[in-house]
Design a protein around this nucleic acid. Sequence first.
RNA 1: UCCUCGGUAGCUCAAUGGUAGAGCAUGCGGCUGUUAACCGCAGGGUUGUAGGUUCGAGCCCUACCCGGGGAGCCA
Length: 466
Amino acid sequence: MAATRISDLLAGKIPTGADVTVQGWVRSRRDSKAGLSFVQVHDGSCFAPIQVVAPAALPNYGDEVQRLTTGCAVTVRGELVASQGQGQSVEIRAAAIEVAGWVDEPETYPMQPKRHTFEFLRENAHLRARTNTFGAVTRVRNCLAQATHRFFHGRGFYWIHTPIITASDAEGAGELFRVSTLDLANLPRTPDGKIDYAQDFFGRESFLTVSGQLSVETYCCALSKVYTFGPTFRAENSNTSRHLSEFWMIEPELAFADLAADADLAEDFLRYIFQAVLDEHPDDMAFFDEHVQPGVAARLAAFVEKSFDRLTYTEAVAVLEKAQASFEYPVSWGMDLQSEHERYLTEVHCRRPVVVTDYPKDIKAFYMRLNDDGRTVAAMDVLAPGIGEIVGGSQREERLDVLDARLKAMNLDPAPYWWYRDLRRYGTVPHAGFGLGFERAVMYATGVANIRDVIPFPRAPKSADF
RNA sequence: UCCUCGGUAGCUCAAUGGUAGAGCAUGCGGCUGUUAACCGCAGGGUUGUAGGUUCGAGCCCUACCCGGGGAGCCA
């Protein structure tokens, strides 16, 4: 008999009285001298485990069932019945329990049926998926990823697989990881003593990508609506709860679009994917609300309920200058907004997500479109209560002469951007896009405070275990 | 990278410079349609590493390693 998913049993999709098989891992076992044991089995299909009632009449009851400990893998066959106890609607009256895998040395098995610290679980990343918390994070992360593709597919966007290995330090967005097959102990040299990258694998210096944006713009200027969703790498030595060396980024790009259309897209997108979590994972959200961050479910519901506010950077600075709040960093036009300022705007002033637009050109990247005032660019950040910046985007500079002037003003060599400049020479078009750090979205939805706990195997400075 | 706090049993944490303990987990026994079960007993330790001060260091000093939180940078 094929195994049934525990989620289907608990959702009432199988009638009581049916013979069922479940396969999963033991979360806990409680014995009763009434002649039975209760075994909680989970298979990852949903938050709750199913209760298996194992009667002492089972042939392997004394030898095996009563030796089951947390983590053992089992196949259970039996009848689905209405539960006599509190706490679950249905349970399985076991006719057979087959142990697929025992836990060696149960006394030292790290995953106990109790609360563990995130730090401890991080050091046991190969086993932490078995916990309530990481099972729930995994399901919500998957939901957000699936919802992302569903959202863009439904709106006619194409998913573009931009390269992981790149030869151009495209936007100077951060420190790069070098990709090389050269022998580090015996580097080839040019006559003037420099490393001879012509002998490297690609015949030139190459790196892991820090962003797919510039690449995806080329497809935007042909297929109109595109997005990337893939791994991204930053070699910054930043050791915080919000940064990873390897993370996933979502970057849509929209042709014949201005900044307002970009902001609308970001708003629709965020509300869509978070609504999907609320719709599809109420049990996981209830767990986060109770055990990870009180109020997170209500915060997410409020996020999708209200439309976003809109402020220009200049308006935002005026609000902050008048604010009855003491900031560590004083506010003045021309400075970048600090996280304390972003949180004031979204949590105190607007009390809802807010899109801040039109930042000073000197604090933004070269590719952002220069506004008519000559001193701001068509950039936008989406700020959310409880987290601050969650999305950053811009309308791209589509005018070649303006783009070249910006490159020059920022002391950037235009040569490596020859293909990016070509887009402005051949059928250029106003276009816009944004970037979303996927793990930041998972953190926001789940309330998990450390970014290393929303990705299976986090990579960070001095940390690449597993 | 900077600031700050920490590292003691499998886990979570105690311990005036003076005999290293508790809860949970594990094992055994008791009790029970149980559900973070409960009650009793037992095993379990090179106190992150290397030095130093002291009659005596988990505790004080120095260096290093690792981790948490915050900052900067960003996504």
